[in-house]
């Protein structure tokens, strides 16, 4: 699949090393994985259980540097990363960001709040923020092999590629 294709092309040694190290931990599971849902629904614990990555290893969108995301195993609070670094981008730039992340970190686990289901805010900045999170997450979900939505700690698989089964962690 996409990961193998990249490896075959020998495009990125760094990516290859990174994947090899992670393969050990994830027992073969390698793909871009998104866990979405409202705030305080147990998304991080759910994601961490699925992929065998300790919660502490996740980058936090509130504090991460702009480039850290391209190397991180996972990020939690991705919506805050968007707020800090991406919300002034237009639609094409957001898609370019998603593509870059997918190229450089094709097996990242992205945990994000869904923030677009409230009353449209009066402040233009708040509207831009919601819109940017929606667009970039749509771009990422299109590339992700799997997307789970968590409500009350219970996950529903809403998109699943062939390579994305977590074995006994399911």
């Amino acid at each position: 699949m996409h990961v193998r294709k990249q490896l075959a092309a020998g495009k990125q040694l760094a990516v290859r090393k990174q994947l090899a190290a992670r393969q050990q931990i994830r027992k073969g599971f390698l793909c871009m994985y998104m866990v979405i849902g409202g705030a305080y629904q147990g998304k991080l614990g759910y994601a961490s259980d699925r992929v065998n990555i300790p919660a502490d290893n996740f980058l936090h969108g509130e504090s991460a540097g702009a480039d850290d995301i391209f190397r991180a195993e996972g990020i939690v609070g991705f919506h805050l990363y968007v707020r800090r670094f991406l919300m002034d981008m237009d639609e094409e730039e957001l898609d370019a960001f998603a593509e870059k992340l997918y190229e450089e970190n094709p097996d990242i686990v992205i945990v994000t709040d869904e923030i677009g289901s409230g009353v449209v805010p009066l402040e233009p900045e708040e509207r831009r923020y919601r819109e940017a999170v929606g667009r970039v997450c749509t771009d990422l979900a299109a590339r992700a092999d799997r997307v789970d939505r968590v409500v009350c700690g219970i996950g529903t698989v809403i998109k699943s590629g062939q390579s994305c089964h977590f074995g006994q962690n399911e």
């Binding site: 923030i115 409230g118 919601r130 819109e131 929606g134 749509t138």
Partner: peptide
């Protein structure tokens, strides 16, 4: 239906 920027 869907939230803002959801692709609805």
């Amino acid at each position: 239906t869907g939230g803002s920027g959801s692709g609805k």
